[in-house]
Design a protein around this nucleic acid. Structure first.
Length: 587
RNA sequence: CGGGGCGUGGCGCAGCCUGGUAGCGCACCUGCUUUGGGAGCAGGGUGUCGGAGGUUCAAAUCCUCUCGCCCCGACCA
């Protein structure tokens, strides 16, 4: 690639609308341009990176036994009605009508299409297992697209779907995919964690997320410092020490004038937050419900009182999953007053009527506790869970925190930020049952396929690589996904002997099979060097008149800044060896 | 969706409060000089001031509507 013939519009300043470093640098390095909110054009250099990521994914998926195909971006509503998701997917699903007024959507994912395909073609257990994937442009109409390619509305995703005859087969396929994913992100040179995850909207029973560790990530990754336990904070559990147990005297109501928060109550009653029962009233009404009948039905048990120890925080994802609702929001002040009979800040489980109570495990272990009395300026002391209020529904609703004990070993948990670049699910028979996708087993009995699904955000992976690998001057690409492996920079295009030598080296490098971007622009040295660092190509070859006189080329490593000189004659071979070494050392 | 902010040459921004001939830096074009870390001098303006209405002798500036973009968002029991 000759720089002079390649469209690389670099920018001197950060774009005004970019917030995170990957968005800023990809824009400045001439890799992407925004077209609309969450919608981008990939310019030639950016597209090369996307191609690199896709190719690694492709190779490892193939090794993992999957086959590539390609499904349509536009999907008929009919399939989504069949799976039941047309009604529940919400506003993220971009719906369109064709000229005959038939309904379609722009695919945010492809379970329906793939299940429809397989049920039509696969009849026998002998045709299983089957694992199919594609690289495709998806559209999800996100509430708030942001951060460039990290959370776009239109984005490129590798999505794969597996079909097995039974659970053990599905688990084996799942493990093969998990291994494939580890290889993929390792080859890309990324620092990542495979974490246990909430299975979310797509549903299913078992899932792992692949998180690239970076401070700008939108997810919290909880991991143990001693063992291999790692989980998304939405799912993570911890070993929480209970306060010292002591006998509970009879329940008593005390005056607590104008103390609302857990901290205030603890100070006022000369106790500690871990002896308090925090009571939060949640409203579980579906904010996007468009079915009035269902909304009314839900109205009856719409509010839930959630109990948790005063020093802990409720994990709303766990709550939503436990209650099997679509959302849970804190109730308004007015609703709290109506339901509990007392103002905000004085809610408690004792004597609470007409509201379902759900408690976190941390509450069960409490003795001689404190809670609100559902009355202005009053709290209960000497509260005994089970004695003073029923403890029928006790589950894990706690948010794991750094410093908590690991649930698997004696270690301690830490929390790091991560970017979710991949997600694998065991789907089970959710879609195959809904869509009547079956095969005949050896006994001639009809059985639903046992499915799995496996996604990788291709653009997001590229962005995550930048979040993890950059410095003040620009991007530092890992060799495997760099837009080119080597940047050959001719410092002075007016020097005929220098240009001749550079052209020769360029040809030699290409002959070695190395991807070279040859900066042959008639620019000043400073401009070219600055652009070189912005673009982040891992190896920079600088050719100047001074070096030429001595018959050497400077080889500068982008990441370390280390410079070595090599004799002009063996530069191509040596550089090619370094590139190959960098590509294999991660595999 | 709610709250806040911003739309002015390619990019980054000033001008708006207090209406009066659209400006700065970079980029870009021409010439000369310069040439190992974003050059200097001289010349050049490449603009529906997001759009539509309105007020006014006069609107980038004031008013209304609208479109787009960015940020924040129940943390409280």
């Amino acid at each position: 690639m000759r720089y002079s013939e390649t469209f690389i519009p670099t920018l001197r300043d950060d774009p005004a609308d970019a917030e995170v470093v990957s968005h800023k640098l990809m824009t400045r390095a001439g890799m992407i341009r925004k077209v609309a909110a969450g919608i981008y054009t990939y310019l030639p250099l950016g597209w090369r990176v996307i191609g690199k990521v896709e190719q690694i994914v492709r190779e490892e998926m193939t090794r993992g036994g999957a086959q590539e195909l390609r499904m349509p971006a536009v999907q008929p509503a009919e399939l989504w009605r069949e799976s039941g998701r047309w009604g529940v997917y919400g506003k993220e699903l971009l719906r369109v009508n064709d000229r005959h007024d038939r309904q379609f959507c722009i695919g945010p994912t492809h379970e329906e299409v793939i299940t429809d395909l397989v049920r039509g073609e696969v009849r026998s257990y002998k045709q299983l297992p089957l694992n199919l994937y594609q690289m495709q442009t998806k559209f999800r109409d996100e509430i708030r697209p942001r951060f460039g390619l990290m959370r776009g509305r239109e984005f490129i995703m590798k999505d794969g779907y597996s079909f097995d005859a039974d659970e053990p087969g599905a688990e084996a396929t799942y493990r093969r995919m998990e291994e494939a994913y580890r290889r993929i992100f390792s080859r890309m040179g990324l620092d990542f964690r495979a974490v246990e995850a909430d299975s979310g909207q797509i549903g299913g029973s078992f899932s792992h997320e692949f998180m690239v560790l970076a401070d700008t990530g939108e997810d919290d990754v909880v991991s143990c410092t001693a063992c291999s336990y790692a989980a998304n904070s939405e799912k993570a559990t911890s070993r929480v020490a209970a306060p010292e147990s002591r006998p509970t005297p009879p329940l008593e109501s005390v005056e607590t004038p104008a103390v609302h928060s857990v901290e205030e109550v603890a100070v006022f009653l000369k106790t500690s937050p871990d002896r308090l029962i925090k009571t939060l009233i949640f409203d579980t009404a579906d904010p996007e419900a468009d079915d009035p009948a269902a909304a009314r039905k839900q109205e009856a048990d719409r509010f839930v009182a959630v109990l948790i120890r005063g020093d802990r925080e409720v994990n709303e994802v766990k709550l939503v999953n436990h209650l099997k609702v679509t959302a849970a929001r804190l109730a308004t002040d007015g609703e709290i007053a109506r339901l509990t009979g007392g103002p905000v800040g004085f809610s408690g489980p004792v004597g609470l009527k007409g509201v379902r109570i759900v408690a976190d495990h941390s509450v069960k272990a409490l003795t001689d506790a404190v809670s609100g009395a559902n009355h202005q300026d009053r709290h209960h002391v000497h509260v005994q869970p089970g004695r003073d209020f029923p403890l029928a529904d006790t589950v894990d609703l706690d948010t794991a925190r750094a410093g908590d004990g690991c649930p698997r070993c004696d270690g301690t948990l830490t929390v790091q930020r991560g970017i979710e670049v991949g997600h694998i699910f065991k789907l089970g028979t959710k879609y195959s049952q809904a869509m009547n996708a079956t095969f005949l087993d050896p006994e001639g009995k009809k059985k639903p396929f046992v499915m799995g699904c496996y996604g990788i955000g291709v653009g997001r992976t590229a962005a995550a690589a930048i979040e993890q690998n950059h410095d003040a001057r620009g991007i530092i690409w890992p060799m495997a996904i760099a837009p080119a492996q080597v940047l050959l920079l001719c410092m002075n295009m007016k020097s005929t002997p220098l240009v001749e030598a550079a052209e020769k080296l360029y040809t030699e490098l290409e002959a070695q099979g190395i991807e070279v971007l040859y900066d042959n622009r008639p620019e000043r040295a400073g401009v070219k060097l600055t652009d070189a660092e912005l673009l982040g190509i891992p190896l920079l070859l600088v050719m100047g008149d001074r070096g030429l006189e001595r018959g050497v080329v400077e080889v500068k490593e982008r990441r370390s800044g280390d410079v070595t000189e090599t004799p002009l004659a063996d530069t191509a071979a040596r550089v090619a060896a370094r590139v190959r070494e960098a590509l294999t050392s991660r595999a």
